[in-house]
Design a protein around this nucleic acid. Structure first.
Lengths: 337, 337
DNA sequence: GGGATTACTGCAATCGATTGCACTTCCGCC
DNA sequence: GGCGGAAGTGCAATCGATTGCAGTAATCCC
């Protein structure tokens, strides 16, 4: 029923062997066939509506032209641009991507990665943090190529594409200090993610360097609810000795917005808030959010490029690519009164 | 290199034929094998770290357990929930999804659908509008199952899952009329999309029914820029005889926000604005957006369910599923002064 | 004119699984 | 004791392509 026209059908119609058809239709081997035969075969295959079966080809060539993309959650707005960046590099090169969501759950992740492997993906782009990464290491040893994007994998030397988080945090603090702020809260991202760790470390070291007060609050995940709960807890305990909140990402910052509002505090008049990522719509928030722009689309592109160069064996060293960020000053930060 | 352990390896280790291993490992055929042999084979296959090759299996069984999801643009926030809904139904059933972005470009769409077919997808979930849909019809005739989600395909009787847009528009107008509004602008979505068409038709008929003034402005796409440009044009021409804007979706509404703001008009004091979809973060906009909630995740689930039932031959009628919506009243609508 | 290339094309194996059919063995039963 | 049937397993074909090797015919060169 499906896909009735096969190589053999074309071969029969053209009165040649399937091998000849295969060679004619493949640009790399076309030269092995006489011009005339190739022309005839192409015409016939078009007339018959032949469509190659990528799956069968992959079985024989041991290349599926398929890669797996492992992300925590597609509904987190930073991931769609990454995925589209990946696609934009992959698709013109004949690859397709399976995107899977782990929801930050390690077991789910293991299961999904296994299923990707069973589907014979040629490589993996992973955007979830890993402290253990057992399966990934195993597969890597078996020859599967892996590239990390957005987060890094501590311990395992996979190639990785990240944004320059350190520079971002520094820029934020510099900006806030210039506005007269002296007492900071940092809503840190998960400690088992490289971004969370790096951002909070930079926050601490920058505060120390500048001799200002910076308190770090740990969060389990990068979510609005966590951010809100963290600030709620602070304010409910009467802690108000801070004028600025440096959030680990935009979602945590948005949670801070919510908490401040329910506690009758105004942003930026009472407290300045800064996000991280410049995800879509941050400019439309109330107030428009000051944040750090990370080039997510480009990170996706770069990750895909790295992966394919690994697959093609061009570039086998575990290179680290860091893309520059920029501070976007909007309405959620103001001079301290 | 990759995936060294095959059925044949397990068979050799167990001293049996590959067929026996295959039967032992497949729950459906396990009964054909003696309990003891099955047990032994399972143990050995586990010890050896055998992973089935889904691609090879698909070649033989003519089922790839893969489906294609065709959407306009993943960075439009209504699509991630739909995709996740689809995944949530598909993955537990052994399926995986290829998600492709067409950017509303018909040629790109044709190319991507072809490539999905070459990859032997068992079915397609399509979220892009179609006036022509030539390729899709062709494939459907060849036995490929297709389900539409979010939008319908005029003419082609594919099963479809949509939200109850008519009810949504009615609720909006009712709400606005109750607030004393009498002069409406509708920022219509693309006329070649079923949602755009249905929403604007309902808008017109409701205005007629209630005897109020409603002007429709056509837009090429569902984007912030289009919405802004449309309202800009209106205001630049001095047209101000309206007190409420009913947007075809949240992005157009957000564009209206921008335009009003740059023209010194306040929402909702001067003009009320209503969106459609209740996409993420609409509650955090300035002002929080009144909109219609469409159950995108559930629509994805339902579409996946329909598709699998088509594939399994359970349900072959082109059923239409309409999911209920609800009006979410927030801060962008107010009583007319 | 004959041996050596070259240019095409076909044969058949192969990728890793699934499955119809045939075969053997073992029981049960008359 | 022999026959029928069931249970368990193996053989080999198959899915749709790719590719090393071999074979044929044409061409070249001395």
């Amino acid at each position: 029923m499906r896909n009735r026209v096969t190589l053999a059908d074309v071969a029969k119609a053209a009165g040649v062997n399937a091998a000849t058809v295969s060679r004619s239709l493949n640009p790399a081997t076309e030269s092995q066939v006489s011009k005339e035969t190739a022309r005839k075969i192409k015409k016939i295959s078009k007339d018959l509506g032949y469509t190659p079966n990528t799956v069968a080809r992959g079985l024989r060539t041991r290349k599926s032209l398929t890669i797996g993309v492992v992300i925590p959650d597609l509904t987190n707005p930073i991931f769609p641009p990454i995925v589209r960046g990946i696609d934009s590099y992959l698709i013109p090169r004949g690859y397709s991507a399976f995107v899977v969501n782990t929801d930050g759950n390690h077991e789910i992740e293991q299961t999904l990665i296994s299923s990707l492997m069973e589907r014979q993906v040629d490589g993996l782009i992973v955007a979830t943090g890993h402290t253990e990464g057992d399966l990934l290491t195993q597969y890597h040893q078996r020859g599967v190529k892996v590239v990390m994007v957005n987060r890094e994998s501590p311990g395992i030397p996979f190639p990785a594409v990240t944004s320059d988080d350190s520079a971002g945090i520094s820029a934020i603090i510099e900006h806030l200090v210039a506005l007269g702020h002296k007492n900071f809260i940092h809503l840190a991202g998960p400690a088992d993610s490289s971004t969370g760790l790096l951002r909070s470390r930079t926050f601490v070291s920058e505060c120390k360097r500048l001799g200002i007060s910076g308190k770090v609050i740990k969060n389990e995940s990068y979510s609005i609810d966590e951010g809100q709960a963290a600030v709620d807890k602070l304010l409910d305990h009467g802690t108000r000795n801070f004028s600025a909140i440096v959030a680990g990402n935009d979602l945590l910052a948005l949670g801070a917005y919510h908490s401040l509002r329910t506690h009758g505090l105004k942003c930026p008049e009472d407290v300045s808030v800064v996000g991280f990522n410049n995800m879509p719509f941050t400019a439309d928030f109330q107030p428009p959010m000051t944040t750090v722009n990370a080039p997510h689309f480009d990170m996706g592109v770069e990750a895909a490029r790295l992966l394919l160069s690994q697959i093609d064996g061009i570039d086998t060293a575990p290179v680290k690519v860091t893309l520059p960020v920029s501070l976007i000053i909007r309405g959620s930060t103001a001079r301290v009164l």
